[in-house]
């Protein structure tokens, strides 16, 4: 098995890891770097619970080779949760009780962050389209949509969601 040296920035800290060529980013994060916030579940890019951001793009780290992240910036929930921006996410998810077992939560939060950063969190439709790759088996999604509605950035303006749901919350 050939090993590769990979240079990464993980949550803003430069890291160098020597990994087998076939090692998956999820295993590098969880087993080598002790960052267990990203979870393993389906192994086939369906459930989204292993989602992390690589250069601001959400990826399923269960099917992403660590060597392909060479030179990239990786953001996991451990890093995101320490940024000032996270406070809004924290508040809206706690207020709506938009989590139950919590296994999918880090992937959902990072996906929402990437959508918002890309200007693609402008409506309820955006939320539903954007979270199509994240399964939550516990909540039935309604609470997650309600929490995400408070994070909507209205296009053309700098005003962010104020915690007031855009819909009447009836769905």
């Amino acid at each position: 098995m050939s090993e590769t040296t990979v240079q990464l920035s993980v949550n803003g800290t430069p890291r160098e890891v020597v990994v087998p060529a076939e090692e998956l980013l999820l295993d590098t994060l969880r087993e080598r770097l002790g960052l267990t916030g990203a979870k393993r579940s389906c192994d086939v890019q369906v459930c989204g619970t292993c989602t992390v951001l690589v250069d601001s793009e959400p990826v399923s780290s269960c099917t992403f080779l660590t060597c392909d992240a060479d030179g990239s910036e990786v953001l996991t929930i451990e890093g995101f949760s320490e940024t000032p921006e996270f406070e809004e996410f924290r508040q809206s998810f706690i207020e709506q009780a938009a989590l139950q077992c919590g296994f999918c939560t880090s992937g959902i939060l990072l996906t929402l962050k990437s959508l918002r950063d890309a200007g693609e969190l402008t409506s309820r439709e955006d939320i539903i389209a954007g979270l199509d790759g994240n399964i939550c088996r516990c909540t039935g999604y309604k609470s997650i949509v309600q929490a995400a509605e408070a994070l909507i950035v209205v296009p053309g303006g700098s005003s962010r969601g104020t915690g007031t749901p855009v819909s009447n919350g009836d769905s």
Partner: peptide, 13 residues
Amino acid sequence: DRKDAGEKITGKA
């Protein structure tokens, strides 16, 4: 509020 929310949201759970 859920008592476990903080840990779960930050990936510490």
